[in-house]
């Protein structure tokens, strides 16, 4: 208390507002997780502990298929988006400042600016004509669409990492006889890796979670986990949806924790 300088924590009601904010953030999720373990069919009245909804979800063929589809799309899209984003980040930071730099940043981040529903409708129309022309109906459309909107999410952490990296390291490598390719392999890439992993994880989670674009682009029988759950909600709601959501939540928390542990060790 010797420090008399300004501190937000001394404003009256600071603690109350902070606690309220956390309650609003986490209470709904907490409720959802609790009712995943409900013994009854209700998602509002507690009637004892049970794992039956997890068992039901696990046994549900549609859930399994949708989960697998989601994972395939999310892994493919995050790999493609991260590769593109890494190249874009290198192209925009590993060079002298250029004319129209801000414009290029905005262009790369297009999916963050354009309303998702607009992109969804545009893709629906665009892919429809390709489907007619080629006859191809597979998962490729969803992977392409997800890859595209995941690029900025992968791009931002990678670019932030690159901007924090001293360009003189690459200059030093070139000075020490490294070719541009070996400079990239031995210096740029290892130092950039935490940024790339962060970008890939963010892209993975964003893809896994997407409803709007997926709903518009998917063909019949191509439900992902989120669109399947949306479909279920139109009928009777059972705690099975809670169970699936809880599983998704656990997966995401595990991924993010793994990432933090991984990057902290690097430092």
């Amino acid at each position: 208390m010797a420090d008399r300088s300004f501190s937000v924590s001394r404003i009256p009601g600071f603690a109350a507002v902070a606690i309220l904010a956390f309650v609003i953030l986490y209470l709904p999720i907490f409720t959802l997780v609790i009712y995943a373990f409900n013994a009854s069919k209700s998602i509002a009245v507690w009637e004892g502990f049970s794992l039956q909804w997890f068992e039901a979800a696990w046994a549900n063929r549609q859930v399994k298929e949708a989960t697998l589809r989601s994972l395939i799309i999310a892994s493919s899209a995050s790999v493609i988006a991260t590769t593109v984003a890494t190249m874009a980040a290198l192209g925009t930071t590993r060079r002298a400042a250029f004319k129209g730099q801000t414009f290029v940043y905005v262009m790369i981040n297009q999916p963050l600016m354009v309303p998702e529903i607009v992109t969804a409708v545009a893709l629906l129309i665009f892919f429809a004509s390709i489907k007619v022309a080629t006859g191809y109906q597979g998962l490729g459309y969803l992977i392409a669409a997800h890859s595209a909107f995941c690029v900025p999410f992968a791009y931002l952490p990678i670019r932030a990492r690159l901007e924090g990296m001293d360009l003189s390291l690459e200059t030093a490598a070139a000075d020490l006889y490294a070719t541009p390719w070996r400079t990239f392999r031995r210096v740029t890439l290892p130092l950039l890796l935490p940024g790339i992993i962060a970008g890939a994880m963010l892209a993975f989670v964003i893809s896994l979670d997407d409803v709007v674009i997926t709903e518009f682009v998917k063909s019949g029988g191509q439900d992902t986990l989120p669109t399947y759950m949306l479909g279920q909600l139109r009928r009777a709601i059972t705690p099975e949806v809670n169970a699936i959501s809880t599983a998704l939540l656990v997966l995401t928390v595990l991924l993010l924790s793994a990432f933090f542990l991984l990057t902290r060790k690097k430092e």
């Binding site: 001293d166 003189s168 390291l169 200059t171 030093a172 490598a173 000075d175 020490l176 210096v187 290892p190 130092l191």
Partner: peptide, 12 residues
């Protein structure tokens, strides 16, 4: 070869 003002040692 160059000795840089910032040293530019490879941190990894």
């Amino acid at each position: 070869n160059t000795v840089f003002q910032s040293y530019a040692l490879f941190p990894h």
